[in-house]
Every structure is written in structure tokens, then in C-alpha cells.
């Protein structure tokens, strides 16, 4: 019962407990999103889109209309919904593979066009759903199933800097930030601003959240948090990269 009380109102109770692995950041991010949905009271107008990847496990997560799409294609589905009915609020939820690899052209072009949708991207430095392969965000030296000796930047480059890239191409009115599961308060502030930016219809909203994948990282609870707070934080700077008024929180 106490667990139920702690649940955001917008959560779909029947689908809880959720299907993410223990210690996975997805659950934390969706908790924060649920609280923001409640606080901004947008449940009626919301269309939640989830990608293929572990984000698909959220297909019945909220008491909000939800469309689970194909891998990488959540952005265009949400763009289509928004263009067809601008009254709705569209949030595309995806992993780093979905957003920065297979769906990168959609992300970049939605940013170019300042689509009035929000993209919420979970950076866990690997392809979780398919069993832990290298992602565009994998850290140098990080071992994954397809970089078993560690990612070699000479061969496969450096971790993708998503928000930096998006911030470089968006027109005015966009909101672009990176948060982390290691700082829930900041994550909630950014999440709220990103959603509010769409409510105000100012422009594209993009939030990347640094997350955890203990299953594929093969880490203990302590190691998981260390990787998030030390290793990942070293490469991925949290903060706001573009805001509509350009008063940024570093």
C-alpha cells in the first residue's frame, strides 16, 4: 500500500510492479516523468510514445494514451501525431541506440524543424534490450558484447554527445538538457521545463538522462552507482544546453 501511495497518479497501477530489471534507471526516470505529468496535470492531453529497446517495457506504464513503435521511429510517430493534432502533448521515449543510431536522422531533423514535441532519451551506454552491445554512447575502454576488449575510440569514435549536438542545430525556442539518475532533483527540474516548453508551444524539447543498466554492465549496486556518478559523469556533462530565454542552469 505504501508503495501505491508513492506512485504518481498518472501511473497505470495494473502494470505495476514494472518490468525493468532491479536497479535499472528507466524506473527512476519514469517516476520523475509521472510526477511531472501529475504536477502539470497533462494526462488528458498526453500521448506517450515508446521505442523498441527497454523503453518498450513502458508500453502500458502510464494511464495515458501510449503508442509503442518501431526501433528508432518513435520521433516521427510523435511528430505525425503532433502535426495532425497540435492540441496533444507528445513525448517520445527512447534509448541511446534508438535516438543516436537507428533514429538519429529523425532526431536531428525534428530538431532542425523545431518540432513541438519532447524527446526523452535514456543514456545507459549500451543496447540494453538486445543484450548489451556497444552503443554510440559507450565509453572509451568500456566492454560490451560487441566491444569485448573495450571500446577503442581510434576504431569506433568517442561517446556521442547528444544534447550538445541537438543544441547546436535547434532554432530558438528549443529546450535541450542533460540530467542524471544520480541527481533526481535536477532531473525533475529539467523534466518539468522540457514538458512546459512543449505546453507553451515554443519549440523542440530534448532531455537526455544518464541512466543505469546493471544487468548488462554486470555490476553490483555499488559498482553501478560508481559507474554512473564517476565514469559517465566524466564524459557526459549535466546541465541545460539551450533554453528558450537562454537563461541556462549549468
Amino acid at each position: 500500500m505504501s508503495d501505491r501511495l508513492a506512485m504518481p497518479k498518472s501511473w497505470h497501477v495494473e502494470s505495476k510492479p514494472h518490468k525493468f530489471c532491479p536497479g535499472c534507471g528507466h524506473g527512476l526516470i519514469l517516476k520523475v516523468l509521472g510526477e511531472v505529468i501529475d504536477e502539470l496535470d497533462i494526462q488528458e492531453k498526453l500521448v506517450f510514445g515508446c521505442d523498441i529497446g527497454c523503453s518498450l517495457l513502458a508500453w502500458d506504464f502510464f494511464d495515458a494514451d501510449t503508442v509503442q513503435t518501431h526501433h528508432g521511429r518513435t520521433t516521427p510517430v510523435m511528430v505525425g501525431i503532433k502535426r495532425a493534432n497540435p492540441e496533444l502533448l507528445c513525448i517520445a521515449y527512447m534509448g541511446d541506440g534508438g535516438g543516436y543510431a537507428i533514429g538519429a536522422q529523425h532526431l536531428v531533423n525534428a530538431a532542425f524543424r523545431n518540432e513541438r514535441i519532447m524527446v526523452l532519451l535514456v543514456n545507459n551506454t549500451n543496447y540494453g534490450m538486445t543484450g548489451g552491445q556497444m552503443a554510440p554512447t559507450t565509453l572509451p575502454g568500456q566492454k560490451t558484447e560487441t566491444s569485448p576488449f573495450g571500446r577503442d575510440p581510434e576504431e569506433t569514435g568517442y561517446p556521442a554527445q547528444g544534447p550538445e549536438m541537438v543544441a547546436a542545430v535547434v532554432p530558438p525556442g528549443a529546450y535541450v538538457a542533460r540530467a542524471t539518475c544520480a541527481n533526481m532533483k535536477q532531473m525533475k527540474r529539467f523534466m518539468k521545463k522540457a514538458v512546459e516548453n512543449q505546453v507553451a508551444g515554443r519549440g523542440f524539447s530534448f532531455l537526455e538522462v544518464l541512466s543505469t543498466c546493471p544487468t548488462n554492465w554486470r555490476t553490483s549496486a555499488r559498482q553501478t552507482w560508481e559507474f554512473l556518478e564517476k565514469e559517465m559523469a566524466g564524459y557526459f556533462k549535466t546541465g541545460e544546453f539551450t533554453t528558450p530565454g537562454d537563461r541556462r542552469e549549468k
Binding site: 513503435t69 511528430v79 505525425g80 501525431i81 502535426r83 493534432n85
Partner: peptide, 26 residues
């Protein structure tokens, strides 16, 4: 009526799906 020139045909197809889900003949 409306039009959007998308970034490719994958996007044209998936935005069409979005438009249909939102209740429009896309």
C-alpha cells in the same frame, strides 16, 4: 489541409501513422 516534407520515407511512413492515430486521414 496540411503537408510535411519529412527527412526520408521511413519518417514519411511513421509520421503518416502518427497522423492517422491522431484521427486524421493522412
Amino acid at each position: 489541409k496540411k503537408f510535411l516534407q519529412t527527412e526520408d520515407e521511413l519518417s514519411a511512413g511513421f509520421t503518416t501513422i502518427g497522423g492517422v492515430l491522431a484521427g486524421r486521414k493522412a
